[in-house]
């Protein structure tokens, strides 16, 4: 009977845990404007939440990438993550993960980049 209970526990908990992990462990996919708005509503002292912004690189400048998001709005990306296995070049579609640095000119600080 103990074994049955343990098996039932596993059968219930593993899918439940995986479901909850997917709920709480998948970053929201936003436009840059939405990411800025989310950063603004974050409590003072807390780091802006990590989000995904699907972007197309417009041009590569020293220290930054100028991209457009799904709404075709231009914004700047500072990428400080590991070297990617694809080139970060103009016209490349990339899924950037990071957070917004608000300020006089807001920009997206990405720490992960995935081939879109």
């Amino acid at each position: 009977m103990l074994r049955t209970i343990v098996i039932v526990l596993i059968v219930i908990l593993v899918p439940l845990g995986t479901y909850l992990a997917m709920q709480y462990g998948t970053p929201a996919e936003l436009t840059f404007a939405e990411a800025v708005s989310k950063a603004m509503t974050t409590a003072e002292g807390d780091m802006a939440p990590k989000v995904v912004v699907v972007s197309t690189i417009q041009r590569v400048e020293p220290q930054r990438l100028v991209c457009i998001d799904k709404e075709q709005k231009e914004f700047q990306v500072e990428y400080t993550g590991p070297a990617t296995d694809f080139p970060l070049e103009a016209n490349k579609s990339v899924k950037f993960v990071g957070h917004v640095h608000a300020g006089s000119v807001a920009y997206f600080h990405a720490t992960q980049a995935y081939n879109q």
């Binding site: 908990l13 439940l16 845990g17 909850l20 992990a21 709920q23 709480y24 462990g25 998948t26 970053p27 990590k50 995904v52 899924k95 993960v97 992960q112 995935y114």
Partner: peptide, 16 residues
Amino acid sequence: LKQPKIALATDFYNRL
């Protein structure tokens, strides 16, 4: 899985 990775929100642990 080559997916964007973030730490799970604390609610995951709290809810369970």
